[in-house]
């Protein structure tokens, strides 16, 4: 499933014209990205939560060459699925 499938679904189910559904889906995604890049978490009941976590510098290895390389400190996005989501995929 891609963004387009989700847009089509919004068109069908919410009866929104396609350009408006497109705008809605795009801005939902953009808002989540913006919020995360400010370091703020996004909590969506039932679905799950996105959070930003800091990672320290560590020594990694290039899996191809076996060479050691320093991996710089960075922030990563973590998703924790909600109970409803977890239960749904196990049905």
């Amino acid at each position: 499933m891609t963004k387009l499938d989700i847009i089509n679904r919004v068109v069908e189910k919410a009866g929104l014209p396609k350009p408006q559904a497109e705008e809605a889906v795009e801005s939902i995604i953009e808002k989540i990205k913006e919020t995360l890049s400010k370091g703020e978490n996004v909590v969506l009941r039932r679905f799950g939560s996105f959070s930003v976590r800091g990672k320290n510098t560590r020594i990694g290895r290039n899996p191809k060459t076996g060479e050691e390389a320093e991996i710089s400190a960075r922030s990563v996005v973590r998703f924790k699925s909600g109970k409803y989501f977890k239960d749904a995929v196990n049905k």
Binding site: D5, R9, I28, Y84
Partner: peptide, 16 residues
């Protein structure tokens, strides 16, 4: 709000 829910429900639906 209804549309936001719909978007995330459809992701849950796809993965299920």
């Amino acid at each position: 709000e209804h549309i936001v829910s719909m978007v995330f429900e459809s992701i849950i639906g796809a993965l299920s």
